[in-house]
């Protein structure tokens, strides 16, 4: 029997902006098993980013419960959420989100810094992941010296360096040309084949089709 890594029960999220309440998510029920390859598909404003934030422990639900690797993170404090992100989640963002003042090696080793791992070990692990992704020759480059595709590969390397349970990618091909986008998607396919749980958040049906399971979201709810 497969282990459920993500269990979301009756989750809702409401944003309070002044006197107006905006219900971004409602009645979300979702279970993702370890090793799943899931795409969360939806148009802009559908609530998929909010769902990604909750799954990624960047935000907590207003109602409902969320269990990540068996722990109810919906009741976690800010610091506990930070630790959960570091332990279980590897983020890949649309805009790569690399630090331009840091080298590729330092960018990739950054999550390990917050895990309290020593410099040498940090660098060694980051180097290993970068070599696996074909970026061995760019270790000491600044991120702004790389192409878009290379930058996104560095971002994937950063997501992988902590060996997280879940890779959470938000529109990972959104800022890439088709060829680079294809390369990045192939990378996610390989990660899935290697046993990783991969969640793609996208509005692009072509990208979503790479996943084994597509969850469509519209107006804050999952379409069955």
């Amino acid at each position: 029997m497969s282990e459920k890594i993500i269990q979301i029960h009756d989750v809702g999220k409401t944003y309070h902006t002044g006197k107006i309440d905006f219900e971004a998510l409602r009645n979300i029920n979702l279970e993702i098993e370890k090793g799943d390859y899931v795409a969360i598909l939806g148009p802009s404003g559908s609530g998929k980013s909010t769902l990604m934030h909750i799954i990624g422990c960047l935000a907590t639900p207003t109602v409902g419960s969320y269990f990540l690797a068996g722990k109810e993170v919906s009741k976690f404090t800010s610091n506990d959420l930070a630790k959960a992100r570091n332990l279980y989640i590897g983020f890949v963002f649309q805009k790569f989100n690399l630090m331009p003042q840091m080298t590729v090696l330092d960018n990739v080793s950054l999550p390990l810094l917050y895990r309290g791992i020593k410099t040498e070990e940090r660098r060694s692990k980051a180097k290993e992941v970068l070599e696996q992704l074909g970026l061995a020759s760019h270790l000491m480059h600044r991120s702004n010296e790389l192409s878009g595709g290379q930058q996104q590969r560095v971002a994937v390397a950063r997501a992988l360096v902590t060996n997280p349970e879940v890779i959470l990618a938000d529109e990972p091909t959104g800022n890439l040309d088709s060829k680079s986008g294809e390369g990045v998607i192939n990378l996610f396919n390989q990660l899935h084949e290697g046993g990783k749980t991969v969640i793609l958040v996208t509005h692009d049906t072509a990208v979503a089709k790479n996943a084994n399971r597509i969850i469509q979201i519209q107006d804050g709810t999952i379409r069955v």
Binding site: L58, S78, K83, F91, N97, L110
Partner: peptide, 16 residues
């Protein structure tokens, strides 16, 4: 702000 958000996303705690 953006960088701090990113650091938090990869696991930095408020105290760090």
């Amino acid at each position: 702000t953006y960088e701090i958000g990113l650091r938090k996303a990869v696991g930095a705690t408020d105290r760090q």
